[in-house]
Design a protein around this nucleic acid. Sequence first.
RNA 1: GCCCCAGUAGCUCAGGGGAUAGAGCACCGGCCUCCGGAGCCGGGAGCGCAGGUUCGAUUCCUGCCUGGGGCACCA
Length: 588
Amino acid sequence: MSLLSDLTQRFGDAFAAVGVDRSAGLVVPSQRPELAQYQCNGALGAAKRIGRNPRDLAQEVIDALDDRSMFDQLDIAGPGFINITVTDDFLAGYAEAMEHDHRLGLAEPDPRHKVIVDYGGPNMSKSMHVGHLRASIIGESLKRLLRLSGHAVDGDIHMGDWGMPIGQLIIELERRQPDLPYFDADFTGPYPEESPVTLDDLSEMYPIVVERCKNDPEEAERARRATFDLQNGRPGYLALWRHYRDVSVAEQKKDFEALGVEFDLWRGESTVHERLATLVDRLMNDDGLARESDGAIVVDVERPDDKKEMPPLLLTRSDGSYLYSTTDLATLDQRVEEGYDLILYVVDARQGLHFEQVFRAARLSGIAPDTVGLEHIAFGTVNGPDGTPFKTREGGVLRLADLMKIVTDAARARLDEAEIAQDYPPEEREQIARQVGLAALKFGDLSNHRTSNYVFDLDRFTSFEGKTGPYLQYGAVRIKSILRRANEAGIEPGPIIAPTIEQERGLILRLLRFPEVIGRAVDVRAPNVLTEYAYEVATDFNRFYEACHILREEDPQRQASWLSLVDLTLGILTISLETLGIEVPERM
RNA sequence: GCCCCAGUAGCUCAGGGGAUAGAGCACCGGCCUCCGGAGCCGGGAGCGCAGGUUCGAUUCCUGCCUGGGGCACCA
């Protein structure tokens, strides 16, 4: 159990003992650290509800605590806050328990969910670019947070591989190379094993055909037709689609691996293509939920109390082809069948309406019962220094691979500047530069709340000073260095004893908050809660490091305790960074 | 027109109905016989506007202003 939940339980008991709902016993870190370590504000609200004086009630609650041995101070302040300071022995006991707990004080989740995190979501029609960055970074971190909390979690890339872009790429290739066998309806195969295009070709073709379809209704119609034919199993198109998919996946696997993003499931829209017809049929005939509208099939999802316009969810176009909404609904159906009871979509905020429609349709049809959680984890855009969406100097979309090079180069320059890792072997140096660049990128992104747009500032993100990924990495590496030196000097870690120095106490208090921080980050699905905490751990450690000279300490018991505390700090810092997707090098 | 998100220090951003709203950068002033100067200590400066709910509002509600975004046959 964590210290905070322990205190909350004790105060909950005390409130219950005086006849007040135990939820009033919620204990939180103090807002006035100079006054106390923790506080409980429950007496204020409770007193109001039962018509009592809050300070009197607070006193009664304190009197009702059945064991007060762990409290150093219990004060009533202001209108009725209970200020709480625990004894140093109690703190040391908790820290010692945490040091030997592989779960670091984290409780088992109740209930334990089977979770799917749907993120990344690249289209197979183009290279990954910065637009995919946030989904990947945030999704990966949320996946790790949920897993760390003890849930059973799978990450699914959910590629865009069955919609209109494929139809567009088919007609574009046909325009360029009409003699390829894929376009000959009478061809009986076999089709070539070699792909007629590379991913670079697709990336080059895609914007061109999109533009043409936008300006030419006939071209748009041809693309729709190709999409329809693909979805209805035209062999040449399917063969071509496989090539498109294979070259895309091969490239994307490299991109995601370089980013440190790992998917458990490489599924996509096409995964459910065999379910689409039966699903639409079921909603049309059995449930009577779907109806025809201008030749298309739609599900009405508006409610009488809606204040806003709520367009129906489109299941098929008027030509019978399927859309994003159809595959999303079918995918949801499949996920529920597979037993997932919490489904998170880490997708750009601009798709909010789409998910509201899909979720409503899923509820109405019973595809997703109320026991299944459906959440759109929305996020904002990445902006350049001028405040508009991030672009290259030429105004184009920045490819992910190029971005990786930019941050790695910047990290390498910073290493030179700070004279870090100067005489290491070149391979190790390169590896460190990549790790530092990624840390800069990820921490820079994740330290913003996910719903806000943020400014991508390379210089700021890669700095070794301030609230940055490289700063935290460097901090962790230096802690490793201390532990290494202690080991070389033959100093052994020992039991964590009661702190006597303010900075030491502060560090312990910070470390003990780890379980609550993880809990909160998971509750609000927001990794920035953890970036904030990791930074606080690092700064509290620096204060401790300044005040307590570990290797020179003469009292062996104290020295051993400090060494354990350093080790615990490294453990908490490392797992925090790992959960953010940031690696800590052995040395820098 | 309707809806969603945002508006907090010079800049970039945190902030869970509670006390005196925090951090980084930048700026100013201190601290190095120190385990890697990544640092540590201190200073100035802020909740878009107007109402409302509440003992108490940056937080919840309403309206307005500003910026970004969305609104069936794209994803």
